[in-house]
């Protein structure tokens, strides 16, 4: 399943980069992420709870940020499995200044197996989009909150 898109953030690139590479923030803004524990440089173990129909369940897996080029891009490699099946994939995130804020664009490919695969890709794509949009909304909130906190 290929997935790509972009999202415009109000925050400047540097700040967005920091948030998008900070495990504490990542854990907070990723929907259902219960745990994100560093196990090496830019490598984490994660526990994710996702709840949509047959896809519902707890996924455990690894996450790594590779080829980091601050503050422009990195490649996110992940692999996780749970009762409904497994997810494996990678995505490249790019950050670019636009209209005083940051345009985050992403492009990735994911492989799913088990029940998640059998419910059909059309459902999966919807789930992925929902999770992503929530992710960015949370990120926006997080960045906003930080700003307020500072001032």
């Amino acid at each position: 399943m290929k997935i790509s898109g972009e999202h415009q953030l109000k925050a400047p690139v540097e700040k967005a980069w920091k948030a998008l590479t900070d495990p504490a923030i990542l854990q907070k803004i990723t929907p259902g992420c219960e745990r994100l524990q560093p196990v090496g440089p830019d490598e984490f173990e994660a526990t994710l709870k996702l709840g949509v129909a047959l896809v519902k369940g707890t996924y455990k897996g690894k996450l790594a940020l590779r080829e980091k080029t601050p503050p422009e891009s990195y490649r996110l490699v992940m692999e996780g499995s749970g009762a409904p099946g497994f997810v494996k994939g990678e995505a490249t995130l790019r950050l670019r200044e636009q209209e005083g804020g940051t345009l985050v664009s992403y492009e990735g490919d994911a492989q799913v197996g088990g029940a998640i695969a059998s419910v059909g890709q059309r459902l999966m794509e919807g789930v992925a989009r929902m999770v992503l949009s929530q992710f960015f909304r949370n990120l926006e909130k997080e960045l906003g909150r930080k700003k307020e906190g500072k001032s």
Partner: peptide, 14 residues
């Protein structure tokens, strides 16, 4: 099945 062997028609929806 997809090429990796995942059953794509695994529910009454599919």
């Amino acid at each position: 099945y997809d090429s990796s062997g995942q059953l794509l028609t695994g529910t009454m929806m599919d």
